Computed example of a mutant assay.
Amino acid sequence: MNWKRPWGVTLIGYFYIFSVLILMITLITNSTESTDLAIRFGLPNISENAVKVLVILIYLTMIYGYLKLKKWGYWILMTNSFYLLLRNIIIFQEDSPQLSYSSMIVSIIFYSTIIIYTLIKREYFYVKYIRS
């Protein structure tokens, strides 16, 4: 039995690929605009560029495993999504001046949707059949 990757998994993977491309562009062009990525990931004492490189490496690994329907890709994505959802809720409750309310609400909805959809499709990551 061949399992095809659900379209939602592909869409989520492409969103992450797009975010990696944006991070690479801002890293290469030495963008002077602060993205507050270090704050969003809970690493305020580390430089923005170091956090960008770390996020790019983690996301590339996660995207590969997720799009190939690997168990470890599923767990990395779920762990990342839960962590960022909790971080965004904490930042939202702290009334952080660095991040706007609209971006916080959108990111909370985004990560909640990813978690719910991936939980619904978790059987695709646990099959032992040949995947196509």
Rank of each mutant, 00 (worst) to 15 (best):
M78I: 15
S102G: 01
Y64Q: 00
D95R: 14
I39Q: 10
W75T: 02
D95H: 11
W75R: 05
S31V: 04
Y83G: 10
D36E: 05
I22E: 04
T118H: 03
I115P: 04
L119S: 09
L85Y: 12
T118N: 02
Y14E: 10
K71Y: 10
S47T: 14
F15N: 09
A38C: 07
L43D: 01
I116W: 12
K121A: 10
T113A: 15
I28P: 02
N30M: 04
T61K: 01
Y16W: 15
N2E: 04
L21V: 14
L21R: 01
K68N: 08
L84R: 05
I12H: 03
F82S: 04
I58S: 07
I120L: 12
S132Y: 11
L23D: 10
P44T: 06
T10G: 06
M1V: 05
L119A: 03
L69Q: 09
N2Q: 03
F82V: 14
T26Y: 06
L85E: 11
Y117I: 14
S132N: 14
L77T: 13
Y74T: 06
S19F: 12
F15V: 03
W75D: 06
F125I: 04
S100K: 11
I63T: 03
V9F: 05
I28F: 13
D36S: 12
D36L: 02
K128C: 02
L23N: 14
I46V: 15
G65T: 08
G42M: 05
V53L: 14
R87T: 11
S112R: 05
I109T: 12
I25T: 13
L85I: 09
I89A: 11
V51A: 07
A38T: 09
P97K: 04
T118V: 12
Y66P: 06
K121V: 12
Y64A: 07
I120F: 14
